[in-house]
């Protein structure tokens, strides 16, 4: 029984980073109808930038998180300006092809400049595990869980309690009417994309501190994030958060009890089941 709870807890910690990753993706799709296949690359860039910041600039771990998130936000703005802006009025299939191109470009550029040696971001946390009620955790993992939950709460506050969030929700409901009330749709799009990229970058730093970073770590993550977005209902942020935790738990329990070799397949099996039986996601109500 203890092992079950241990797996459950591990799943929730992984799931929290999945949730972080999916929020941006689901917002971008809900608002701009872009099937972003390059989302995982911002996750990868987050890990790579954080590693580079800690090594080259000798910043400590906590500072490097802040710097990386800021850099990913800027990169998000830059890519929105150069590329995404051209995808707002084109068919979804075209957006998928272009972002597949972006993904190939980013992955292999990083591979060329940085090589494919797996690396881990150094952290000041002790390796010695803590024991809480019979369950063992490293303090790093608890830190990851706290940060992701804080950021998820912060995101919900932005969306539901600020003027910017209200503008975002209005744009999501009806962009033409929102534009008529004086909301700058372009600005909302740019900020949403950059915010999503920053969240993906943060997930990359956090995962890069206890897993390894490589130029190709983004591709499997993109499909997983899409699976979660669909399970939660595309454009639905609470759904994405729930879906993230759900997938984390299913992967962890599945790897523990069913088969570890098929760990990466669980998300796809879930998404296929959801699409067949509940095509609009588990919570079909459309909301942001």
């Amino acid at each position: 029984m203890l092992e079950f709870f241990q797996q459950l807890a591990n799943g929730l910690i992984i799931g929290s980073t999945y949730a972080l990753l999916t929020i941006g993706l689901t917002m971008v799709f809900g608002l701009m109808q872009i099937l972003n296949y390059a989302h995982g690359e911002f996750y990868m860039l987050g890990g790579v930038v954080a590693f580079w910041v800690t090594q080259a600039l000798h910043l400590n771990f906590f500072l490097s998180i802040i710097v990386t998130v800021a850099i990913c936000f800027m990169l998000g703005l830059v890519f929105e300006r150069i590329l995404m802006r051209r995808l707002y009025e084109v068919p979804i299939v075209t957006t998928a092809i272009v972002t597949v191109g972006l993904s190939i470009f980013l992955q292999n550029s990083v591979f060329m400049l940085w090589g494919n040696v797996p690396r881990t971001i150094p952290t000041p946390f002790p390796l010695k595990p803590l024991t809480i009620g019979g369950l063992t955790f490293t303090s790093l993992r608890i830190f990851v869980l706290i940060v992701t939950i804080a950021v998820i709460v912060f995101t919900q506050i932005i969306i539901h309690r600020t003027k910017l969030g209200r503008a975002m929700r209005a744009t999501f409901q009806d962009k033409d009417v929102a534009a008529m009330t004086g909301i700058s749709i372009r600005k909302i799009y740019a900020l949403t994309f950059a915010y999503g990229s920053a969240l993906a970058g943060l997930a990359g730093v956090l995962c890069g501190s206890y897993l390894t970073i490589s130029p190709f770590m983004g591709s499997s993550v993109t499909t997983k994030a899409w699976a979660i977005a669909i399970v939660g209902g595309i454009g639905n942020i609470p759904g994405a958060i729930f879906g993230g935790f759900l997938l984390g738990v299913v992967e962890s329990l599945g790897a523990g009890y069913l088969s570890a070799a098929y760990k990466d397949a669980y998300s796809f099996i879930i998404v296929i089941l959801v699409l067949v039986f509940r095509p609009n996601g588990l919570f079909s109500k459309k909301e942001l």
Partner: peptide, 28 residues
């Protein structure tokens, strides 16, 4: 039979999901 219940983005995701599952099955 499964994928053609979907269109557009859902269809694209489904095709990647099946591709990954088949790859894992063959590999394992």
């Amino acid at each position: 039979l499964v994928t053609f219940r979907m269109r557009g983005s859902y269809f694209v995701i489904m095709t990647t999901a099946f591709a990954e599952i088949v790859r894992l099955v063959i590999n394992n």
